[in-house]
Structure formats: C-alpha cells, structure tokens
Design a protein around this nucleic acid. Sequence first.
DNA 1: ATTTAGACCTGTCAGC
DNA 2: TGCTGACAGGTCTAAA
Length: 271
Amino acid sequence: MHVIGASHKLLRSHSHPPFLKVASGARITDVRRRAKNVIVDLDNRHSVLIHMRMSGHLLVTSDSRHMTREGRWENVPKSDPLADPKNQFIRIVFELSGGMLLALSDVRKFATIDLFKTDALAHYLDEKYGPEPFEKTFTLDWFSRELKRRNRVIKPLLMDQAFIAGVGNIYADESLWKAKIHPLTRSDALPSEDVQALYDAIRTVLRTAIDLGGTSDDDYRNVAGEKGKYGLSRMAYRRAGEKCARCNTTMQRLVVGQRGTTICPQCQKKI
DNA sequence: ATTTAGACCTGTCAGC
DNA sequence: TGCTGACAGGTCTAAA
C-alpha cells in the first residue's frame, strides 16, 4: 500500500520507524480487530493500528473517486484527494494494489493511526485491554468475580476497556436496560441474578448490533458508505423522553461518569 | 484505587 | 435569520 494523502497529526508512531517509510510498498497480510481497534498486519513485521474514536470510519472504493463522510465518491485527482474541499473530512487515503483506495473519514479528528512492530503490538494489546466478550476467557464466573473485586460504578466499569473490550456508551446503556440495572449501581452490590442477566445482555446486545451492522447515530458508515441498522432497534441509548418498550414509562437522561446515559426509571431502580 | 474535570475537534440542533 | 449553549460513538492526563 501507499499513502497518497494524510492530514497533520493523524499518524503517530509508537515504535520508532517513520510511518510512511515502513508502510509504503508493504503488502497487507491480515486485517483483524482488538477492542475498538482495526489492525492491519503488513508483510514486513509491522502492523498498523487504527482507532476511529467517535466519528471516524473507513471507506473503500475500487476506482479513483472522491470521498465524503457519506461514502459518496466523485472524480478527483488521485495525486491529492485531500485538496478537494468536498473531501474535507477525509484524513488519509491509502492506495492499495489494483488501484483500490482505502480512506479514513473523520469529522472530529480524534482518530489515530499507530505503527507497531507486530510482536510488540501483541504485548501492548494484552496489557491494555480486557477480554473480548465473545472469547472463551470471558466466562460468567470470571465476570462475577471481577465485579465483586472491583467495587466500581457499573456503567463506567463496563466501558472501561481494560476491564472488558468493546463496550462503549451505546452498548453499555443497551445492556443495562436489558438487564434492568441502574447505571450507578456498585459492581460488588449486584445480586447474582443481575450479574447473570448483565452477562447475557452484553453478549446479546453486541451480537444483535454486529448482525445489524452497528449503530449509525450520526457519522458511522461501513466501508461501502452504508449506515448500520442497530439505531433503529435500540431500546435505551438516546431515547430520553420516549417511552420504555417494556413498561411504557418515560425514559430519562442522566450523566454517569461524564457520559450521557438513558434509563427507564421504572425498570432500572437504584439498589 | 477511583473518580472527576478538562482537553482534543467539528458539526448539528433546540431555543431565544 | 442569527447567535449561543448543549451535546455527540472515545480516550488520555492531571489532580482530587
């Protein structure tokens, strides 16, 4: 792959060698995910780590067109695609073999791209992130023990990537609603039925969201520029003022750990 | 050991 | 219509 345009400050380098020098000309051997990162493995013992934060998403096209945050493309000089004002949200473009283009669109400029040596990356990720919710290590037993041990407010704990990988604000609200747990409950105060319900809810919610292509609250698109459909069937996230799907009570907005949070005050009572 | 506030950015929307 | 403030998918740091 070759980088044919990159905005300032996007490319960071955790391991020393300059990004462009290492990435240019390398072949991609694998693309995978860990926590909320996309990992692109190269054939030169290096890996690219992409974190899209709030508004970032990757787009691909098979010909040289123009890229917007909606994923629409128009003709634009391939030499400098970021120069076109219509491309103002495209922060970097990679040219892949065969002329395929891979772009990162990111309105808020929070996304980051790091370069690692592949074996160093493995250690970095293991150190930094908790288990994946669909991994064997994420058992009910483990979850239960950790909740007791930590003694933390449950919602921020669910969103703590060092505890469990992958649950953010949307799926934390959805899981807590499904399990009928108030987001301010202390993790060690949850009765075992609630722990079980939460464990199941996390996996059910994530499974459903993945199957529906994620949540496009605003900017998120898949690589073809299409919106995810989970937002249409969400039960809690950003539904304040609407009726609870279970009990018809008006949903309520609160702030927990500086994050907007929506609950059903009837279903999710504080313990 | 946790929690909180603030920072990083830009866009959208509600209300006056 | 125009302005202002609140809010938005996430994570990091410093300080309480």
